[in-house]
Structure formats: C-alpha cells, structure tokens
Design a protein around this nucleic acid. Structure first.
Lengths: 350, 350
DNA sequence: CTTAATAATGTACGCGTGTACATTATGGCA
DNA sequence: TGCCATAATGTACACGCGTACATTATTAAG
C-alpha cells in the first residue's frame, strides 16, 4: 500500500483540499492556514507521497541537474585520479547542499562536443567542463556554448579570445613559489619538466618558473626544460634526458606529482637518488606525494574548493534572472608544502 | 534563430505532417515513407530541434538515469580514490554506451538512506550502491529497497539474509593466492593486516588467508592478525604492533595497497626495511602500488569491469518486463601480481 | 476491378506538476 | 453593520512528448 506510487490528486482528496493547495504546501508557496498545511502533510505521509521529480522539473522547465563533463579516453587516465576525485567531491558537496542533481557526462576530446544540446534537451541547467585543453575540437565546442550565453564554467583552463567563466588555481604563483624554494636553497641551474602545452595551466607554470628565475637574475636555459604529458610514464621516460643532463642541473621542478614520481623511479633505475643527486619539487600535493620515498615537496592545489566554488557561482547565476550573462573568473591560491624530495638536507647527504 | 528552442509542433508544421509522425520519425517507430522521414529530419535540422529529454522521460515515465550512490563523509576518503574512480569509469562507460544518464548521489552512512525515494520521485530507473558496509543503518536502507523489488545492485558487499543483486570480486581466492605466494617462498609465520570487518570483503579476505594456511598445515596464530580500516594512516599506525612482532613474523599479507604503503612507511620510520626484513603483499593493484619503493606485490581487482557489468545487468533487467524480480550475483576473478615487496630475493638481500 | 490486408499518417489524450487568475473566507476599522 | 484589504483556497490550463486508436493511402491477390 505505502509502496505504491500515489499522486497529488489522491493527496488532495484525502486532505479535502484542491491539488493546487497540495502543491503550495509542498513547495512552501504563498500564505496558508497552518491547519491546512498539517492536514496536507499528514495525507501525503499516509499515502507515502512525494513529488515526482521528473514531472516537477518538466513543469518548471528545468532539469534540476548540473552537468559535469569529463574527457573520456577508454582505458587512459588523462588526469590523475586525485585531481578528478577531489574536484568531483567538491562539486558533489555543493550540488548536494543546493539540492541539485549531479549528472556525469563523458566527451571525446577529439570531437566537437555538443554542449548546447545538453541544454536544448533540458538534461542540465548548467555545466562544468573538466580537463579541457586548447586543442581545436575542445575549443570549438566550448566556444559554441559561450556564444549562446549558456551557464557554464571551465575548470582550470583559460581560452584566449573567449569570454567564458572559469575557476582556476594560481599556477603562476604556485610555480613561482616552488622554484623560489629551490633558489633559496642556493640552487641556480634549475630545470623544469612541464606538462603538455595545450593546457593553459602548463603555460602558467612556465610563466611562474621563468619569473622566479629572472627575478634571481638567472638566464633561462632552454636545454634544461623538458616536456611530458602529466602521466607517470612520461615522467619515467624523461629520466633519460634528465639523467644525461645531471651535470648541468642543480635541481628540478616538475609540473605534477605523477610525473615527478615516474621521474624519480626512472632515475632510480639508473642508479641516481633523489634528492641526494637531484632535488625535485612536484606539484598538486596528491595522495601519492606523501606515499613515495622520498615524500614529495610539492604545491598543494585546492581542487575540492575549486569544484565547490564553481557550483556555487553557477547556481547563483541561475537564480538571478539575467545572471547567466555575467561571467566570473575565480582564481584560488595554492600552498607550498616542504617534504623530503627537495633536499633541504642535500649538503649533509653528500 | 537556430539557437532558440523549438518544439515538435513547429517541426510538424514545417514538414507538413502531424506531430505524431514527427515523434515516430525521431524515435524510429513503426513503418513510414522514406520521403516523409527525410522531410521531417530536414525540418528538425532547420529548426535546430532536438527532443526535450525531460518531457520525453516524463511521458515515458522513466528518468533515463542510473543512480550511483556513494558514501559521503566530509573531508574523509573512506575509499581509495583508485577504487572509486575505476568503478565509476566502468559504470560511466556502460551507461554512456546505453545512452543512459549517470546521476551521482551521496549518502550519509550513519543514516538510513531512502533509496526508495529516488525511485518514487522518478529520479532514477535503477541504482548501484558503492561502498556499503554491514553497519545497521546501511543494512536497513538497502533492505528496504530490496523489499520493494526495486532494480538495484550492491557493489562488492554481501549481506546475510538479504536477497539483493550484487557484483563482486572473489576476494577469498584473491587472498588465498596472495598468501599461497608467500607460502611458496617458504614463509610460514605469515601475519595479516585486515580492514574493517563490517565489509564482507574483509571477511572474505580473512577466509582466503585462513584457507591457505590450513591447507599448508599451519595453525592460525591470532596474535599476528592485525586490524586497520583500509586507510594509509591505519597502516602506518599498525607499524607499531607489527614492528614489535617482527620476531614472530616471516611475512605479512595486507588487505589493501593503501594500508600496505602506510605500514611500509611506518616500518621505515622505525628503521625496518621491506622486503628485506619483512616481505609484504598488498591488495588492489592500485596506481600507487607501482609508485612506491619497493613496488608492491599485490592482487589486481577488476574494478572497471565490475562497474561495467553492474550497469549491463541492471539495464538488461529494466528492459525485461518482470526482470526486476530476478536477482543476480556476479563474482569476478582477481589476478595476482608479483613485484618487489614480497621479497622474492629476500635471501640474497640478507 | 474488387477487396482485403497492410502501410502510412492523423487525432486525441494522458502523464503530474506549477502557476496565473478567479473566487471565497477572514478580520480590522469606521 | 458595512466595506475593503488581504489571506486562503480553488479552477483551469500549459508544459512537450508517447502512444492507443482511428483514419486514409497503397498494394497484392483474386
């Protein structure tokens, strides 16, 4: 009995009121007699009635869902699962607090994703794009969405000549801090293993790296700037070049922890110890950063908070009649964390 | 123009047919003239029309979403992010292939979660419960759902006296393999650091551990069975007890990689090296297993496949009229992976 | 050329809710 | 008591689609 699905009509009959009154009670709209309210609630409870979410959304013309669009390449993890799960946790928390749904969607980065369709078909009310890069297909999909004044937000990626809302971390400063730390220990020939340049945050890291060196009056030496793709394997492969250059390297800044871990493993395979022979600073402060030996000195990125903030900003704009048109660009600060890999104790180890 | 939202009526007018014909063309239902089909599709394209997903679901009486319910404890990661992201990837892949939506939901493990409400309000058509344990509140919520013949599936957790569909891995066998490997190297006094007993997969690991020892004619020594909670910290804390027991331990089996990593760090802090002084086998084959030094010998669990399978089984039953009532219980096999932590080369290191 | 079967399309309505607008009840004040 | 503002509730319909059923067009068989 209580399991069967009941509808508004039955509740209205049982409570002896009209359907509209039931609706008002359930949505807390307009003035109403407390006694009526109680009668309706009692009837609803007795019939085990709850609003039909679909019908409700349909009538309202909103889906009640926030879409989170992830890059999906089968069997390949473009992003560290840490990045992914932390941002998602933040998004999840905010979405839950606002009583929205969280719809997970996957896109093929090599195709122009039809974001607008998600809105046209009313599957989502707003969306957050994760893991976007500047490659043409990605850019085009997002540009289309931007051209239609749709409420969306790109996470940790900037596009030139495109007016899109973003939430990001200050990777220029984060990288500056990391390199500064190495400089302060007296290292001058500091190399850099960066990630793929199609991510604006790679570009930002480079900017921070360069700024720190310039400020110290050190000329950039392009021969000690290496490139990976943020994967552990790419870090492991970079070990060849880095190992060959040990003679001209005092220390190395690596653009994320995964690459740093791969690199450290690669160097170890060649008999080279970190930080004794090469101090290293990573980036992200992922779980793994404190699981490795040596534990990584790294830059903590507030992924959780970024996810949360994106949702909050988007929902603010949804409730505001013409807020959709107002773009936002939030930048959160990173935090430098000293552990073992950067070789504070290098001299004594020698 | 093309951006504005159009509806079926407009398409019907432009194509010179009835709304029903438009609907049939778009859903590919019933026989129809090819010329009509083309006219309708052309009109839809011209008007930039797409089915309104909400209205469509509403009319059909189905949400088109699969719910994935995760335990949510703020700022605490109950599960390794590896577990979480792998299963989710598998679920995401399957859901996408079947053109369903993936709705992420969070529950408080200490409260009785109202799964039935998700169905009653039509938010989801089926659901997958991740990270459930046998604590009373969890059990009660799931039991209620089971009592209503709702299409759901519990991941990697068995409940006694409850008729629920499940997808799981064979952790008895996985643990048996792990311990067997240690036995084959001649170790006899093999300890076990297990996770929390409210997870049936902890119980299963224990069963596999015991079976392997019994088969080898070794008596169970309860004093070398330790307990953590699958977190790295709990592994780190267990190092105290393990270190004190080194005299009566030949090797140690740890119920997951995270605890193994924490334990290894804890032992290292006390000056004890793995595997030289204590060979260890982990469990999960998480990313971190091959990031640590030494790399972990471990048991690979097909998380991705488990997620995928759960969705496929559920959707099969959704399309079958009375398939909802048919329970399924799938068990996937694990794979043993030898790396360095189990000390194949122990003797030569000594 | 009929006739009947089947293809192709149209008509009409229901799905459960939100809400604009209409109506009735209530209370305060002169 | 009469009047009016406001509270409280009811009426009626739209939302966009799926689909059962009715109707008309087409084809094949006799």
């Amino acid at each position: 009995m209580a399991d069967s699905v009941s509808n508004r009509k039955q509740v209205a009959e049982l409570a002896g009121v009209s359907e509209a009154t039931v609706s008002r009670v359930l949505n807390g709209i307009g003035p109403m007699k407390e006694s009526t309210r109680q009668r309706v609630l009692a009837a609803a409870k007795q019939l085990n009635y709850e609003l039909n979410a679909i019908a409700s959304c349909f009538a309202r013309g909103r889906s009640g869902n926030i879409g989170v669009v992830l890059p999906h390449v089968p069997k390949v993890h473009l992003f560290s699962t840490y990045y992914f799960s932390e941002i998602l946790s933040g998004i999840g928390e905010a979405v839950r607090a606002k009583e929205y749904g969280l719809l997970l969607l996957f896109r093929d980065p090599d195709e122009v994703y039809d974001y607008a369709s998600l809105f046209r078909t009313q599957r989502i009310d707003a969306c957050i794009v994760l893991g976007a890069s500047a490659i043409a297909s990605e850019r085009e999909g997002i540009a289309k969405m931007a051209g239609q004044e749709l409420p969306f937000c790109v996470m940790d990626q900037r596009f030139q000549d495109m007016d899109a809302s973003t939430v990001a971390a200050d990777h220029v400063q984060g990288s500056y801090d990391a390199v500064k730390h190495l400089l302060e220990q007296g290292f001058r020939r500091i190399g850099f293993l960066n990630g793929a340049p199609q991510y604006s945050n790679s570009v930002d890291r480079m900017a921070g790296y360069m700024r720190a060196l310039r400020e110290a009056g050190i000329e950039i030496d392009e021969s000690i700037i290496y490139q990976g793709n943020y994967s552990r394997k790419s870090g492991w492969m970079a070990a060849d070049a880095v190992h060959a250059d040990l003679g001209k390297l005092d220390a190395l800044f690596v653009a994320n922890d995964r690459m740093a871990i791969g690199l450290i493993q690669g160097l170890r395979d060649k008999g080279c110890q970190v930080p004794d022979e090469l101090p290293i600073v990573g980036y992200d402060d992922s779980d793994a950063a404190s699981m490795t030996e040596p534990q990584l000195t790294t830059v903590k990125v507030p992924f959780y908070e970024m996810g949360k903030l994106a949702v909050e900003r988007l929902l603010e704009r949804l409730s505001d009649p013409d807020g959709t048109k107002v773009r936002f660009n939030e930048t959160l600060q990173t935090q430098f964390i000293v552990r073992k890999s950067s070789g504070m104790n290098r001299s004594e180890n020698r």
